[in-house]
Design a protein around this nucleic acid. Sequence first.
DNA 1: TGGATATTCTACCTCCAGGTGGGAAATGAG
DNA 2: CTCATTTCCCACCTGGAGGTAGAATATCCA
Lengths: 141, 141
Amino acid sequence: MRLLKTSEYAIRVLSHMARNEAERYSVSSLHRALGIPYKYLGRLMRKLTKAGLVDAARGKTGGYVITRPPGSIHLIEIVEAVEGLEDFDHCILGFEACSSDQPCPLHDQWGVQRDSIRRMLEEASLEDLALKFEEESEASD
Amino acid sequence: MRLLKTSEYAIRVLSHMARNEAERYSVSSLHRALGIPYKYLGRLMRKLTKAGLVDAARGKTGGYVITRPPGSIHLIEIVEAVEGLEDFDHCILGFEACSSDQPCPLHDQWGVQRDSIRRMLEEASLEDLALKFEEESEASD
DNA sequence: TGGATATTCTACCTCCAGGTGGGAAATGAG
DNA sequence: CTCATTTCCCACCTGGAGGTAGAATATCCA
Ligand code: SF4
Ligand code: SF4
């Protein structure tokens, strides 16, 4: 009952980058600031680039920058890019599909829970999470 | 956002066995009835035996039987036995712990979702799910 | 007393998430 | 031009989930 670690990484990175919408962040700076393994973070950033969430620039003054306003990027989009959303539609007994002919007592309850989490991820944006890192920077900058 | 496949298997098996509280089910009969890989199911049943959820008997008339009334066995106990409950307490940004000093906007929302699912698993018993298989048997017995 | 049927045990296998390492290629600063 | 800094790409490793194979052990029944 948790996101993939990589999804958590992605949300953490993008929330951090949402602080300064225009700044270019290098992998090494993100690694230092957020404690995510350097090499693995590089691969993740490449993935987020291909997903269109960030824009990459090589060379000395290169780095990554968010492509869209933080308020318009919702967590569901990040999760989808990293791990997909398949696991949000899954029978709690592991059946492929027993349709809704004779749903078991848990079918609806379980569906409500999944939908509730999904809705939360759809409504929460990077702007909401950015201030988390504002607070930290006040102390450590 | 789903349980481990093995947890789903376990819930499926135990719900099926909850039909007849006293009957001894062999691995092969459970395999045939529920479509769970035979060898893997054997290992799972051994695990459930060690967890005290079922009782094993060897020999010709052997098999597994539920140890307690289905109404008293709740799903949370099964999930705990199979995959543990660690993943139900986890920051959505993947941080170890930033405590509740300055929780981010998602901290409480995410906590509510986890607790809600946990409560569902605590309240749902095998008795509730047993009738799912009653219906099936009416058609195929 | 067998032999059939059951659980039990050990050892492997495959796949994938997470992680590491060594470079190649681009690009701005000097 | 040169070089440092950056993204990019490759191959590899590890641990655990899910699955498979083969035999050892217990037990009832005929
Ligand atoms: S009715 Fe129950 S068993 Fe069937 S798909 Fe829904 S949750 Fe699964
Ligand atoms: S406040 Fe936010 S970042 Fe901190 S533990 Fe809670 S969810 Fe994670």
